[in-house]
């Protein structure tokens, strides 16, 4: 097994543990639910939008995976030296804070539970 794969397994476990420790979906359940969403067994609709009521994005992450708002919107403010073009963009009042991009990376890099969005420097040859 490649070192990068071992790293990804540990990363996935860490994410799952973090989620379960925070009282959201159980770790193993999270991976199963993600798989069921991908296979179509769990219907999340076709409304591709960020709408928090019936948009697919929040239905997947909040309604089905039961991620608390703070899992993604955990920070009220970015650290002073955080580099993001939308750093000063005001967020909707209901959002808990700015988006923690690291949360996306943990589940959406190669070998993790989400579909691969980031190849991740750790997986490069």
């Amino acid at each position: 097994m490649k070192l990068s794969n071992v790293f990804n397994v540990f990363l996935s476990i860490a994410v799952l543990m973090t989620v379960s420790l925070n009282g959201f979906a159980e770790g193993a359940d999270l991976a199963r639910i993600a798989e069921d969403i991908r296979s179509g067994e769990i219907d999340v609709g076709k409304n591709y939008s960020m709408d928090t009521k019936d948009g697919r994005f929040h239905r997947i992450h909040a309604d089905k995976l039961l991620l608390d708002c703070e899992f993604c919107h955990g920070q009220k403010f970015y650290k002073q030296d955080y580099l993001s073009a939308d750093k000063d963009k005001p967020y909707p009042k209901k959002a808990g804070g700015h988006l923690k991009k690291g949360s996306c990376l943990s589940c959406h890099q190669e070998g993790s539970i989400g579909f691969t969005l980031y190849k991740g420097a750790t997986t490069n040859e």
Binding site: Y48, S49, M50, F57, L83, S84, A85, D86, K87, K89, L99, K101, C104, L105, L117, Y118
Partner: peptide
């Protein structure tokens, strides 16, 4: 573009608006 807005959270640099 269908205006779904998915590109914004996907971008690590917070670029698309």
């Amino acid at each position: 573009c269908i205006g779904c807005g998915y590109c914004a959270p996907a971008c690590p640099y917070g670029v698309p608006k």
